[in-house]
Amino acid sequence: MSRLASGVVLVTAQEASLDPDDPQAPHGEDVGMTATAFMSVSLDPPLVLVSLREGSRMDDLLDEQPRWAVSVLSESQRHIAGRFAMKGRVSDRLLFADIPCVRGEATGAPLVGGALATLECRTERRVPAGDHTLVIGRVLTATLPSPAAGPLAYFKGRYRQLD
């Protein structure tokens, strides 16, 4: 499968506050994950699919939180893809610290500035598939922050630019 080129996205969601009754408690934490298994499923209704490793933090979060977002990364955002793909990484709060983002109106999730496209989604269905979960989401909003930039691709285990 390393011979199949794919686009690269950052899937994001906002984890709920650990103590919603405490006004002093943090409002929740932004969570992000790089994904290369992402695709359009349907135009009517607008549906997309992302494949998540079963038991991963994002899989667990999207099992509880039905609203999430996707930023389709541009060729200049390789550092973002690498940062959120690291195993054993530091807290996501630190990973988001210097990335320009806006909050999605429909999800509250971070949307990466300079992305080729951003989508906000609501989970319609979760399908177990081997060691992954296929999450099908209905697109709630879609924007094109940087439509003229080139895409970031993943091929043979490396991030690449199209020539």
Rank of each mutant, 00 (worst) to 15 (best):
L52Q: 03
R78M: 10
F155M: 08
S40W: 07
L134F: 14
M1L: 12
A149M: 07
P26K: 09
R158P: 05
P23Q: 12
A153G: 13
L4S: 11
A109F: 07
R103V: 07
L73I: 08
E54K: 13
I80P: 06
F96H: 05
E54Y: 04
A81W: 01
V8C: 07
Q24N: 14
D92C: 01
R126N: 05
M1Q: 10
L18Y: 04
V135W: 11
I136A: 06
L144I: 03
L134K: 03
P23G: 11
G157F: 08
E105K: 15
V135D: 08
T123K: 07
F84V: 00
G150E: 14
A85I: 03
T123P: 09
H132V: 07
A13F: 09
D60Q: 15
S91W: 03
W68H: 07
G104L: 08
G7T: 13
P46M: 13
P151W: 08
R138M: 06
S42Q: 10
L61Y: 04
A153R: 13
V11F: 05
E29D: 14
M33L: 12
L119P: 02
A142C: 12
L52G: 05
F84E: 00
L73F: 10
P46T: 11
V50Q: 03
L43T: 10
P66W: 07
I136K: 02
Y154D: 04
Q161E: 15
S91G: 13
R3A: 15
A149C: 03
S74G: 15
P26E: 11
S56M: 06
P128T: 05
V102G: 09
S17Y: 08
F155V: 10
A109Q: 10
A13N: 03
A5I: 07
E120S: 15
T141E: 15
G104N: 09
G113N: 08
E124S: 11
G114I: 11
R93W: 02
E105N: 12
A153S: 12
A16T: 04
P110T: 03
I99W: 05
P151G: 07
R53A: 13
V90M: 05
A5V: 14
G104R: 03
G130I: 10
L10Q: 00
I99A: 04
E15I: 01
V127T: 13
R103G: 07
M33C: 10
V90K: 04
M39D: 11
R83L: 09
L18Q: 13
Q14C: 12
Q24Y: 10
A85Q: 01
G150M: 11
T143F: 02
G130T: 09
G28K: 05
D163F: 09
A117D: 02
A25C: 14
V90Q: 02
F38I: 04
L47F: 14
C101H: 12
L144K: 13
A13S: 14
A25W: 04
